Simulated scan of single mutants.
Amino acid sequence: MADNGVAGLDSTDRQILRELQADGRISNVELAERVRLSPSPCLRRVKSLEERGYIRGYMAVLDREQVDRGMYVHVMVSLTSQRQETLEEFERAVSALPEVLECYLMAGESDYLLAVAVADLEAYQRFFRERLGEVPGVASLRSLISMKTVKYTTALPV
């Protein structure tokens, strides 16, 4: 099998990563069966993948609707300045907002792109006005409201 540009991984390692991305709670015995190893070597490989940083952790993916965070909004943020101190202050403030799930420094039209999860439009309006709009250094905010999730995955191709 081709390496696909993932240095240090063989086809069994990649299969282990695919299986764990699909089901992080799979037992070692079941994982070993799926990748055609005995349990001990399989566990050693998983531990090695963890130690080498390929696996950063394990988590539960929650249903946003069930936890009252069904509205997903992307926000394009432009800052008043590109000075390092402005960027750092913005990043600190946004990192403290639990509604912000993701924050990316961007090249292009906006300085940052945020992914925000809230209950509904009223909750977003309140968050926008009372919290996000008050973050230091913000010059403008453009909201892109998600109407439908067509594809969502956390699994990376390996």
Rank of each mutant, 00 (worst) to 15 (best):
T154A: 11
Y124T: 09
Y54T: 04
D23R: 15
M59N: 03
V138S: 07
L156R: 10
D63W: 01
L31T: 08
S48C: 01
R56E: 11
R64V: 08
E122R: 15
G24R: 11
R64A: 14
V138G: 02
P41K: 03
E91G: 11
R69W: 02
S11G: 11
Q82N: 06
S146K: 10
T12N: 05
S78G: 01
I26V: 15
R34Q: 14
G53C: 10
S40M: 12
L87H: 06
R56S: 02
T12H: 08
E30M: 14
G24Y: 07
V116N: 04
G137W: 03
S81G: 02
Y72M: 08
N4C: 02
V73K: 05
P39E: 09
L105V: 15
S81C: 00
L79G: 01
R69H: 03
L87R: 05
E19Q: 15
A107D: 02
E134M: 10
S140A: 14
P39W: 01
I145L: 14
A123Y: 05
P39K: 13
T86K: 00
G108W: 07
E51P: 08
R18N: 09
V150Q: 05
C103F: 07
L97N: 09
E122W: 05
R129N: 04
L43H: 13
I26W: 00
G53L: 03
E88D: 13
T149V: 13
Q15S: 09
A107Q: 13
E109A: 13
Q125I: 04
L87D: 06
A117F: 09
C42K: 04
S140Y: 00
A119E: 11
G5V: 09
G57T: 04
L17F: 06
A123P: 13
D120R: 14
R52H: 10
Y104P: 01
A123F: 13
E50Q: 15
V6T: 11
E30T: 10
L79W: 02
V73F: 03
S11Q: 13
Y58Q: 05
A115R: 04
N28A: 02
R56N: 10
K151Y: 07
G133L: 01
S40W: 12
G57M: 07
Y112E: 06
A107Y: 15
R64P: 15
S95K: 14
M76Q: 12
V116K: 15
S140R: 13
G5R: 10
E30Q: 15
L101A: 11
I145G: 07
I26C: 02
